[in-house]
Amino acid sequence: MSGAAQADGAGTAAGRGGQAAITLADVRAAIGAEVIWCPDPAVPVAGVVTADLMSDVLVDARPGFVLITGLATVQAIRTAAIADLAAVVFARGKVVPSEVVDLAREMRVPAFASRRSLFEAAGLLYASLGIRAAEAPGRTA
């Protein structure tokens, strides 16, 4: 884990009150991500979580969130499947190993790749899609 200041932290965002639902296609377009595997770009997105530590994802993410992470391992896919997430975006231009791609297909977890940092990707989604910060549901401190 290295790079942008936000890289080690987990942040969440959710909502776009009163407007059409945000989809995986919207997220992909906003951050210019490449498709690794995505059979249905019209899947709605409930929010965004950025993290490299998977326990933070399990605390902060709600069902339907997109995970943006620099962790290009099978555990990002498994975590997304366990937590009912909408998709995983592998950020920072990380090389996504073939076993990660295979597991995404096997577990039917849509996956994308982006050269942008977590900070840039989150900022673009905040600015262009109007996704705003939401109080993390699980944090007690």
């Binding site: 884990m1 490299d52 530590l53 998977m54 326990s55 933070d56 555990q75």
Partner: peptide
């Protein structure tokens, strides 16, 4: 362990939650 995405110190608290 942290390079693999774990070790945030949230495991047991997350189980309890």
């Amino acid at each position: 362990m942290r390079e693999l995405g774990f070790g945030a110190g949230m495991g047991l608290p997350n189980i309890k939650r």
